[in-house]
């Protein structure tokens, strides 16, 4: 119960959804809170305190990462992509369309994280089978769908049937 150390901050510069960003952030601020509260990109969600749920998944230098497990200062110099960047030109990606067609979301809270994890998978493995999709999404919790339609939606993109 000691007096906390005074908040210290640091300037960071990074690229978020293709745009350069420079910011002075408290050293202890989580990356997810920097994305949501400072940048206003509220599509990235928080569902747990412990890194289990994956609702906060973003891409850092092309790798899917739980943004509640990084400090904002650790993202200095990186290239970040969030869900808002997927359809940056206003055109939904095949995966986003497939989620809609397959009813792969209900409340939509886990969806951004699911999309970011699945997008990373499809970049590495454009034609995943069901097992590969399930492995790739095991770090993302959904409490609405039972994953059935999510998995179908991702597989369908790889099969070109969506």
């Amino acid at each position: 119960m000691g007096t906390p150390a005074p908040a210290r901050s640091r300037a960071i510069s990074l690229e978020v959804n293709g745009e350069a960003v420079e910011y002075e952030v408290p050293a202890r601020r989580l990356l997810v809170h920097f994305i949501r509260d400072d940048l206003g990109l509220t599509g990235t969600h928080v569902g747990c305190d412990t890194g289990n749920c994956g609702a906060c998944t973003v891409h850092v230098d092309g790798v899917s990462v739980k943004s509640c497990m990084l400090l904002a200062v650790q993202a200095d110099g990186t290239r970040i992509a969030t869900v808002e960047g997927l359809a940056a030109d206003g055109e939904l990606t095949a995966l986003q369309r497939s989620f809609n067609e397959h009813h792969a979301l209900q409340c939509g809270y886990c969806t951004p994280g699911m999309l970011m994890s699945a997008t990373a998978l499809l970049e590495q493995n454009p034609h995943p089978n069901e097992d590969e999709v399930r492995v790739a999404l095991q770090g993302n919790i959904c409490r609405c769908t039972g994953y059935v339609n999510i998995v179908e939606a991702v597989v369908a993109v790889g099969e070109g049937t969506s």
Partner: peptide, 19 residues
């Protein structure tokens, strides 16, 4: 019919209270 809610939600454009 595919859901109309989805278009905003798959783009991270839903509005939840914490947003």
């Amino acid at each position: 019919i595919p859901r109309r809610e989805d278009k905003r939600l798959v783009q991270g454009l839903g509005t939840f209270f914490d947003d």
